[in-house]
């Protein structure tokens, strides 16, 4: 087990700090909590760990109404009530109304799986605390059927958060933590490369310049992230935009072509237009 190492995949660029943290979590079988700006590859990481280590992946996407219990199982009382009124035979066995959640599914896998708990901060503040015991012991009890479900293998648990809520200390103590920093230009080059291996160097250079410049514009509501850059590059390729169209001299005086992929917020577009207007006027 200890020789298992995640080193990124052909679709995913993992930096050294990320690899170290992930591998520590894999080694000890403890959850890893991933934070970072939107679009920095938090969700995809779990998929790639599963692919890289050849493990099944189970996903649990958390919403504001999600309860911890739903990850284990749900008792569909409403269906049972309906069946009882319709006189259905199934009603006598409560097990018919137990619906397995992603955590239960993960516990049943024949080889160690990867379990993604995506956007944990969307849920109620109690949510992480409600999972402490299950994360520690990797087992839980089903009251309705009086059975204990024990994990066949401790899943590799990847938890993502967008920082909307602070997570409780008791929960944090049980996790490894990694914060994905916004990729620097070199890492970004590698990332673009796994998505568009045949991109022309000049185009990529100009595009990256324009992209990082744009991120520096003060006061943007939503800075474009990796996913926006990738979308934009796709459009640039599709429209066959030449690198010159992005080149430095014009950059501060015109909106970049197809900027809609980068700036999704109308206010941000206005802000940028204003800056460009000022630059044109000042002849800078």
């Amino acid at each position: 087990m200890t020789d298992l190492r995640f080193t990124g995949t052909d679709r995913y660029v993992a930096t050294e700090d990320l690899m170290t943290a992930v591998n520590a979590a894999v080694t000890l079988g403890r959850p890893i909590l991933i934070k970072g700006e939107p679009g920095t590859g938090k969700t995809q990481l779990a998929e790639e760990i599963a692919r890289g280590l050849e493990r099944p992946l189970l996903q649990w996407h958390v919403k504001s109404t999600t309860k911890a219990q739903q990850g284990l199982y749900e008792y569909d009382a409403v269906a049972r009530l309906r069946d009882s009124q319709l006189g259905d035979e199934r009603v006598h066995d409560i097990a018919n109304y137990i619906v397995k959640g992603p955590m239960w599914e993960a516990f049943e896998q024949e080889i160690q799986p990867v379990l993604l708990i995506d956007e944990i901060d969307k849920a109620d503040i109690e949510f992480p605390n409600d999972l402490l015991r299950e994360l520690d012991r990797m087992e839980f009890y089903v009251y309705e059927t009086h059975q204990t479900v024990v994990a066949k293998h401790r899943p590799i648990i990847v938890i993502t958060s967008n920082n909307e809520k602070e997570l409780p200390d008791a929960f944090l103590r049980r996790c490894f933590f990694h914060y994905i920093r916004f990729p620097d230009a070199d890492t970004m080059r590698d990332i673009v490369d796994v998505h568009y291996p045949n991109l022309k160097k000049e185009l990529l250079n100009e595009a990256l310049h324009a992209f990082y410049d744009l991120r520096e514009v003060p006061g943007l509501k939503k800075k474009p992230s990796t996913s926006e850059l990738l979308d934009w590059l796709k459009l640039l390729l599709a429209e066959d935009v030449p690198p010159e169209a992005l080149s430095g001299d014009d950059r501060r005086k015109t909106l970049p072509p197809l900027h809609g992929a980068l700036l999704k917020n109308e206010q941000d577009v206005h802000l940028f237009e204003r800056l460009i207007f000022l630059n044109q006027r000042d002849g800078r």
Binding site: T2, D17, T20, A24, D169, L172
Partner: peptide, 22 residues
């Protein structure tokens, strides 16, 4: 757990992932 050696940098990342949660 690890048999192979650690570089300082790796140790730094490892310590950070274990000890700092914010």
């Amino acid at each position: 757990k690890r048999i192979a050696g650690y570089s300082v940098e790796e140790f730094y990342y490892l310590a950070r992932a274990c000890l700092v949660k914010n």
